[in-house]
Design a binder for these strands. Structure first.
Lengths: 255, 255
DNA sequence: GTTGCTGGTTGCACCATATGCAACGCTGAT
DNA sequence: ATCAGCGTTGCATATGGTGCAACCAGCAAC
């Protein structure tokens, strides 16, 4: 809708991959380099990009600042933090917190596991809905209509042998998730990793986010992983309580 | 230089403070709301802002993503991380890593202290140069000319009773910092906190960043703090080594 | 039911503003 | 000395961003 802004944002996202030179950028976006220069200058004046010497444009510090401010705003994150940190401490495995945004799951917090073999991820990263435990939890919490619509609208790229491949099986899986109160990703996203996830609820019982444990299969087989479910559920419940949820009014909302 | 982009960035930074409504934003930036709408839409299409229902525009997830990607790019951060985490673990105090950018110090990493009384800060936050330990370390590492120019160009807002108030005293202090290899902020920035900082060096001996310990005065008096200097220096040295620095070629570069 | 309010949305006409071009300057390599 | 790569500047053009005014939708008050 706004050309220059659009281009500028494309520039920034492109810079995120790696520092680049001016003409590189110009070529990439398909505009004249003088145009890129002007955009970069405005971006620079707001500290969105930073240039050190020729041939080096990098992302600037405003990004860190904004991102962290934004994360601080998310009360789920603050509320859930202690419980998740404790879970991470107790199990030694990677813990994620993800929320639903624009038809995708977005990681909003992460606690790195202690084991040498670790999952790659990053706060802010988007995760597919059909093959992650957090995705399943988040979608299963949506009102039925929305859930079905979504299930039919998303693509089902097959990422591993176990990946769910169509809307029907996905909807079935979502039903199971809603019933038991947690979701499993049995190496459906990455071959080496499996996860379990549970919902974090707010005052009205609505699902604010999903908390998950991700562990490499070499460390724990699927039964070992499932043995951690009670631990995860306890942490998610503790997090929920911190977010204003109270145990009594369970049941009513989801499905 | 680019009006629309400039406005858009202002919008984003304004949204960072708190979620706002359309006309609020329009008024704040002094533009017609239809204009704001268009800008927001483009921002939204890039996930820079996110709208949930009417009356609610929030920062979007692209910010988190970019910010963390950017932080990952900074090799200082990665290199220094283990040493700083260990320092934090050992002392229980807040540890910061800051780098010099555009005439300011910017926090690029932080390890939260364990004590209930803590310093407020945030990754991405900018810190003044004249009254912080990290600022002193970073400036004292600049070439003499640049250092003097900078010292004369910055303002010296008096934030506490101890704040350095003019360029002369500042330059004197910088000399001392360069000599001993670490800097002290004796409650010059905030009344309740004092800090010590040391440089983290790269392969050529150049200063990449400054590492600091911040501790509330109620926990430790100045002598107690200074007793931690060797610990800090060891951590900074360890971090430097991880960043490619080797002990031998000391001396030459700074001053 | 009607009115008024607030917040968001659309189409249009105008001209400010972003754009591409071409030429210049700088730096470092051959 | 020459060249190549990169960044920078001034200028003319028309594209694209802007403001306006009218409209729609939800909501509260009366």
């Amino acid at each position: 809708m706004s050309q220059s802004l659009d281009r500028a944002l494309t520039l920034v996202t492109s810079l995120a991959r790696e520092p680049k030179t001016l003409d590189q950028l110009a070529q990439e976006v398909g505009v004249h380099k003088s145009t890129v220069l002007r955009l970069l200058r405005t971006l620079e004046s707001h500290h969105f990009v930073h240039r050190e010497g020729p041939r080096h444009y990098r992302l600037g510090s405003a990004l860190f600042d904004l991102a962290n401010k934004a994360l601080e705003q998310r009360d789920v994150r603050r509320g859930a933090e202690p419980a998740l940190a404790a879970l991470n401490e107790r199990t030694g495995h990677t813990v994620h917190l993800a929320s639903f945004e624009d038809g995708e799951a977005v990681y909003i917090d992460k606690f790195e596991g202690r084991h040498p073999v670790r999952m790659y991820s990053r706060v802010g990263k988007r995760a597919p809905l059909h093959c992650t435990a957090v995705g399943k939890v988040l979608v299963s919490a949506l009102p039925t209509a929305r859930r079905e619509e979504l299930a039919r609208s998303i693509a089902y790229p097959r990422l591993t042998a176990n990946t769910i491949g169509d809307a029907e099986s996905y909807l079935g899986e979502l039903g199971r998730v809603a019933d038991r109160g947690y979701a499993v990703d049995d190496a459906e996203h990455e071959d080496f990793i499996h996860c379990i996830a549970a919902p974090v609820r707010g005052a009205g019982g609505e699902v604010l986010a999903a908390a998950s444990l991700s562990v490499p299969r070499v460390l724990l087989d699927i039964d070992g992983l499932l043995a951690l479910v009670p631990d995860l559920l306890a942490a998610a419940e503790e997090a929920s309580i911190q977010c204003g949820w109270s145990k009594k009014e369970q049941g009513g909302i989801s499905r």
